[in-house]
Simulated scan of single mutants.
Amino acid sequence: MNFDEMTTGQFAERINVHPVTVRKWDDSGKLKAHHRTESNRRVYTEEQVRAYFERVGKVSGSDMDQLIAYCKELDGISAKQQTEHLTMYLSNRGIQKSVIRETEKVYRNSELKRIVTKMLNGKVNKLLIYNKQVIFDEVKDMFEQIMELKDIEYIIVENEEDL
């Protein structure tokens, strides 16, 4: 297999479905493998992952449009490292989003405050972060209460296996 090629199981994992689903889609014509090996195994490509997410995004509306990726400097892991982790997480799922990098030291003037406004207005349904330490201590309880009330999902990408 080439660098950007993957097995049915790898492809299924990338698009967050079961391998049996991918096989059924291939059999029905809903999705076709890029090609088959000599032993008749299906092979998929990175381009197919991107195409799948583009198609799903257009069909399902704003699900990924309402995801926000956010980071700020932490002891032990820089905002740059967090940005790389978050970008890899998104890229591995075929999502093209910018990571909001916090530059303020206090909540009052922060990007996080602007994110809270979007959350309250129903414009955020997922928050992608490295870990919960990126949330300002002074508002952590209130922030989590808003997330719970608005049914906003935390996606935490602290470990390599999360990528």
Rank of each mutant, 00 (worst) to 15 (best):
Lys32Leu: 14
Ile152Arg: 00
Phe53Gln: 14
Met88Asn: 11
Thr7Gly: 08
Lys150Tyr: 00
Ala69Gln: 11
Gly76Thr: 12
Gly94Val: 10
Glu161Thr: 07
Gly76Pro: 14
Ile68Cys: 07
Ser60Lys: 13
Gln48Met: 15
Thr8His: 02
Glu73Ile: 06
Gly94Trp: 03
Ile129Trp: 07
Gln81Ser: 11
Glu5Cys: 12
Ala69Arg: 06
Thr103Leu: 01
Gln66Glu: 15
Val139Asn: 01
Gly76Gln: 13
Ser78Lys: 04
Tyr44Thr: 11
Asn92Trp: 07
Phe53Arg: 15
Gln96Leu: 09
Leu120Tyr: 00
Thr7His: 01
Gly61Arg: 11
Leu127Ser: 08
Gly61His: 13
Arg41Lys: 15
Leu74Ile: 07
Lys113Arg: 13
Asp4Ser: 12
Asn92Gln: 09
Ser98Arg: 12
Tyr107Gln: 04
His34Lys: 14
Met6Pro: 05
Phe11Asn: 08
Ile146Val: 12
Lys32Val: 08
Lys113Met: 06
Phe136Ser: 01
Phe136Glu: 03
Thr45Gly: 07
Tyr130Ala: 08
Glu111His: 00
Arg114Thr: 03
Ala69Leu: 12
Ser78Ile: 06
Gln10Tyr: 02
Leu163Phe: 07
Glu5Asp: 09
Tyr154Asn: 00
Trp25Tyr: 14
Glu158Cys: 00
Lys150Met: 02
Glu144Ser: 02
Glu102Pro: 01
Glu111Ala: 13
Ala51Pro: 04
Ser78Met: 03
Thr117Cys: 00
Ile95Phe: 12
Arg23Ile: 13
Ala12Tyr: 09
Cys71Gln: 10
Ser28Gly: 01
Phe143Trp: 07
Lys126Asn: 07
Thr87Gln: 15
Tyr130Arg: 10
Glu38Met: 04
Val56Ile: 15
Val56Leu: 15
Ile15Trp: 10
Gln48Arg: 14
Ile156Ala: 01
Asp162Tyr: 06
Lys113Glu: 10
Glu158Trp: 01
Ser110His: 08
Lys105Arg: 02
Asn109Lys: 08
Ile155Trp: 03
Leu149His: 06
Arg93Ala: 06
Asn16His: 06
Ser39Lys: 14
Val17Tyr: 05
Ala33Met: 10
Leu127Arg: 04
Thr83Ile: 03
Trp25Gln: 03
Arg14Pro: 04
Tyr44Lys: 10
Lys72Asp: 01
Thr8Phe: 05
Arg50Phe: 14
Thr37Phe: 07
Leu67Cys: 05
Arg23Ser: 05
Phe53Ala: 05
Glu73Arg: 09
His34Glu: 12
Glu161Arg: 05
Lys24Thr: 11
Val124Tyr: 01
Pro19Asp: 03
Tyr154Ala: 00
Asp63Val: 13
Gln10Ile: 00
Met142Gly: 02
Val157Leu: 02
Glu5Gly: 04
His18Ser: 05
Lys32Arg: 15
Glu144Trp: 00
Glu13Ser: 09
Glu84Pro: 03
Met147Asn: 05
Leu128Asp: 11
Phe143Thr: 06
Gln66Ile: 02
Trp25Glu: 02
Val157Pro: 01
Gln10Trp: 04
Tyr154Ile: 08
